[in-house]
Design a protein around this nucleic acid. Structure first.
Length: 927
RNA sequence: AGGCGCGUAGCUCAGCGGUAGAGCACUUGCUCGACACGCAAGUGGUCGGUGGUUCGAUCCCACUCGCGCCUACCA
């Protein structure tokens, strides 16, 4: 035995990290520079964030694709990097400051930004460390960050060009305003959910002095900014009032009653107050009727009317006060309970306020048109393809994109203002100064726009900015357009659509050819994983394992809502009473890959990961077996030409499996790849071929033939390792390196070995048919043994009977194999004429497999077994007969199907006859 | 209000026009020299419901019931 004997079981943590380090050190992750380009850009995670299950899942898919193509000989780049996550990161650092009793304004912009860079430096390594633990083959030397200087200059370049083409404009518009974060957010960053509220019916007295109209509103405090009351032009109830005026309560202002068919006559009173500065619809109505925009809120959503008694009150406090004042004046007609959609900021959870401010916008429609075309004409393909509907739906109704954010952390907008309010958009301050000089005829002082760009603006450039754009770099030429974007459906709008628009606009080409849209990882109950729910799993906890107490601690610390801690602790203890076992990276990756189906929800199932950890161990031990049986024999993999059928069979199977793996990978069906490889390795290679090899190596006197078995053991294993490598990189590397010396192959790593290819010469129908038959015969004996409760170790006598010459020659050829696999005494042939003892019988097509009853077998058990088998056959027969009795079937079904059905019936009927006779014989025995 | 997805074995999921599959769980045996993270043999499904197309439907179509998601301006 050698000193490098494998451990008895697979222990992932002993090898993963050193293997990864050696890959990285050797530069295997970097593009080779040879072959067709294959490029994936990683969806950049938040630089200060950490890896969650969704990332881990997505990264598994990308790494599998990348490793596969690298082995296929492509010039492969998986581009790593992170984004600056404007709002999220700024919030985190502001919260840190809060603990010190400071705000960002106390520090000032420069110091605050410095502080964020500091935080990035401290926490920024987390995510790349975690990615490394996942085994990702990212080209780390090319790692990018959206705020790197070159990427920032790409951002400015894009901004300026869009501005120059009038595709970016600045304007005072209603935007979604987050009154806690004090910034505009885009419509995508607003999540509306139904909440309960009230519908207040308020009387607005008519100026004529005769009565009042009643308006219904969910937001009485905005009354202060009303500019009109609107009714439907064809509403007979209010027809006479159109053109009249009402007195706006609490303000004494006079506002008109206008007619607009936006009003829904059925809703509320059919009479609507119009607040153009605080509601998107009212804004439109206001535009149509030339109404003034009356802003009544400040940037924290408190009332901003210095002359009013409500000045300075928060919107909800003001609401209460206004309602009570109205009540005092008898102006509240009624208050109804009301369910309504409430828009909240996805980060702050604050109720978002439509708010009138100066912002920068991207004119989206002209950019969308070519982006729509790219998908329509197939230059970009969604996988699964129904996601293109979602894409089209949004793109065809696209709204202008508000890109300015009132934050400090991000790409500052490259626009400079003079004191007159003119602004100059330029790549640099010098250029802006020059523009200003040209404008004014002399130098003026300028100051840069305070706002930064939406993080998604820079993300939209990611596929080409990371490759060096706007420089025409070699990487850009070789690797752009990238091949596939792997992403979740939740960011199709945020990111995918915008990359397509900007990619086409600035490179003239699509940014990627395929968009592979995967599902979202959920917990075992189907719940979305989130820190606040306390159901997150850290991929590293699955890799390394975690004690229950530790898990409870991480799940309950740092909560936004500390009152949830108890509940979270309880469910955690219930769900993971023993903590989480250590499964290793390969098992985790294989699990993710197996879950990469076409669906939307991916429930993480611990049964799966445990099963795949066992699979790793199986592979490990199969390798041990192969090593033990080949070491010292120098078999090589140079396959002998004259192989016996078990070898021809397993090689043929390997060949089909290779074809299936390639096809499934190309279709992004990694779940099928898993299934195929799992069942090949476990059910065919280990359960059958290894067992056959044991027998042959023990009994084979011919050394050449024994060597052929050893070669086959090795070469099938070696090939299987390469097939598995994209999914399970660590164990396959470890085992491959271990067996390489035995195979005579050389090469420093499995990573850069060629991916297996199919070879028509390996196909072998005859060997496959023969081995299927051998397996069926062995299974028949094992079935009798199992059902009869015969000791597994005990050799039993069996008789074989057949008139079929194929059966007879197969028996001749495989008798030793069958007898060993089924643990029988030497096979005995008999003819139907022979007087046969009473037997337990099973049929393999035309072959009768019989185990003499004797003392071994229980007569009742055999009768029960026969009964069960007969029942199965009889249902089958009646199905067949039913079909064949149908004239339509005979006439219309394809001939092959009809013939098949006839054969099936014949076989079934024969089998039934056989078994009935057998039953009679057994019944004839006296019990 | 529109759009989409899902409903297959106890659980998690494949299959999607010609004999219902996998993993886990379950039952019964096994300290056989690779592996108990294992071996062998089993149990378990009117493929959500109703109708239609078809010689034939888990698969295609229509309707329907449940669950979920995404878009949308009903105050």
């Amino acid at each position: 035995m050698t000193t490098t004997e494998l451990a008895k079981s697979f222990e992932p943590h002993t090898l993963e990290q050193s293997i990864y380090a050696s890959w990285e050190r050797s530069g295997y992750f970097e593009p080779s520079g040879i072959g067709d380009g294959y490029c994936i850009v990683i969806p950049p995670p938040n630089v200060t964030g950490s890896l969650h299950m969704g990332h881990a899942f997505q990264d598994t898919i990308m790494d599998a694709l990348v490793r596969y193509h690298r082995m296929q000989g492509c010039n492969t780049l998986w581009q790593p990097g992170t984004d600056h996550a404007g709002i999220a990161t700024q919030m985190v650092v502001e919260r840190q400051l809060e603990r010190e009793g400071l705000t960002r304004h106390d520090l000032g912009r420069e110091a605050f930004i410095e502080r964020i860079w500091q935080w990035k430096k401290e926490s920024g390594g987390t995510i790349s460390r975690q990615l490394r633990r996942m085994g990702t083959s990212l080209a780390w030397s090319r790692e990018r960050f959206t705020m790197d200087e070159d990427l920032s200059s790409a951002v400015r370049e894009v901004f300026v060009r869009l501005y120059e083409e009038d595709l970016i404009y600045r304007g005072k518009r209603l935007v979604n305003w987050d009154p806690i974060l004090h910034t505009a957010v885009s419509d995508l960053e607003v999540v509306s959910e139904e909440e309960s509220g009230h519908l207040w019916h308020i009387r607005y007295p008519l100026m004529s002095g005769e009565g009042y109209v009643v308006v219904a509103t969910t937001r009485p405090e905005t009354l202060l900014g009303d500019a009109a009351v609107a009714v439907h032009p064809e509403d007979p109830r209010y027809h006479a009032l159109i053109g009249q005026a009402v007195e706006l309560p609490l303000t004494g202002r006079e506002i008109p009653i206008v007619a607009d068919d936006y009003v829904d006559r059925e809703f509320g009173t059919g009479c609507l107050k119009i607040t153009p500065a605080h509601d998107f619809n009212d804004y439109e109505v206001g535009q149509r009727h030339g109404l003034p925009l009356i802003n009544v809120l400040d940037h924290s959503a408190a009332i901003d009317l210095p002359t009013s008694p409500y000045h300075g009150l928060d919107r909800y406090i003001a609401r209460e006060k206004i309602v009570s004042d109205l009540e005092t004046q008898g102006l509240i007609e009624k208050i109804d309970e009301h369910r309504m959609m409430v828009p909240r900021g996805d980060r702050s959870n604050a109720v978002v306020e439509p708010y009138l401010t100066d912002q920068w916008f991207v004119r989206a429609a002209p950019l969308a048109a070519p982006a729509i075309r790219a998908v329509e004409d197939g230059r970009i393909r969604f996988v699964p393809d129904n996601w293109q509907r979602t894409y089209f739906e949004w793109m065809r109704n696209i709204q202008d994109w508000c890109i300015s954010r009132q934050l400090w952390w991000g790409h500052r907008i490259p626009a400079w203002y003079d004191h007159e309010g003119n602004f100059f958009v330029a790549r640099t301050e010098e250029e802006a100064t020059a523009q200003a000089r040209a404008h004014h005829g002399h130098d003026t002082t300028l100051h840069q726009d305070e706002d930064v760009l939406d993080t998604w603006f820079s993300s939209a450039l990611w596929p080409f900015s990371t490759l060096g754009w706007p420089e025409q770099t070699a990487s850009l030429k070789a690797l752009y357009p990238t091949n596939v974007l792997v992403t979740g459906f939740d960011i199709i709008f945020f990111w995918v659509a915008r990359m397509i628009m900007f990619g086409i606009k600035f490179t003239g080409e699509v940014p990627f050819h395929d968009v592979y849209v995967h599902g979202l990882v959920r917990d075992a109950d189907g719940q979305k994983m989130s820190k606040s729910k306390g159901n997150v799993l850290d991929p590293l906890d699955l890799i390394d394992g975690i004690e229950l107490e530790e898990l409870v601690k991480t799940r309950t610390s740092g909560l936004m809502q500390p009152q949830m801690a108890q509940q979270i602790e309880k469910t955690t203890r219930r769900q993971f009473p023993d903590g989480i076992a250590s499964y290793g990276t390969d098992a985790l990756r294989f699990t993710f890959a197996s879950l990469a189906t076409q669906g939307r929800d991916i429930r993480f199932d611990f049964g799966r990961i445990e099963g795949f950890r066992n699979f790793c161990n199986k592979l490990w031990n199969a390798t041990r077996f192969v090593i033990i049986n080949t070491e010292g024999h120098d078999p090589g993999t140079q396959q002998a030409t004259d192989l016996d059928s078990p070898e021809r069979w397993i090689l043929a199977r390997l060949n089909s499996v290779t074809g299936e793996v390639i096809a499934s990978t190309e279709q992004y069906r990694l779940d099928l790849v898993c299934q195929t490889l799992h069942s090949f390795v476990w059910d065919e290679y280990c359960s059958w071929y290894l067992e056959i090899a044991k027998i042959r190596l023990a009994n084979e006197p011919n050394e050449d033939r024994a060597q052929a078995v050893r070669q086959t053991l090795l070469s099938v294993l070696e090939t299987a390792l390469r097939l598995l490598h994209p999914l399970m990189p660590f164990i396959t590397e470890a085992l491959w390196q271990r067996i390489t010396p035995l195979t005579g192959l050389t090469g420093p790593t499995i990573m850069t070995q060629p991916f297996p290819a199919t070879d028509a010469l390996r196909e072998n129908q005859d060997a496959v048919a023969d081995l299927d038959w051998v397996k069926a015969v062995v299974s028949a004996v094992r079935n009798i043994r199992g059902e009869m409760d015969i000791e597994p170790r005990k050799r039993i006598p069996i008789l074989l009977q057949s008139e079929n010459s194929a059966d007879i020659s197969r028996i001749e050829q495989y008798q030793d194999l069958i007898s060993e696999l089924a643990r029988t005494k030497p096979l005995a042939m008999s003819t139907p004429d022979d007087a046969t003892p009473e037997c337990a019988t099973a049929l393999v097509d035309t072959l009768r497999v019989m185990v003499p009853l004797g003392s071994l077998i229980d007569r009742d058990a055999e009768l029960a077994r026969l009964k069960k088998e007969l029942k199965r056959l009889e249902t089958e027969r009646s199905k067949c007969e039913g079909k064949l009795a149908n004239r339509q079937f005979i006439e219309r079904a394809p001939d092959v199907v009809v013939v098949k059905e006839k054969n099936r019936l014949e076989q079934t009927v024969n089998a039934i006859d056989e078994l009935i006779q057998q039953r009679q014989r057994v019944e004839g025995l006296l019990g």
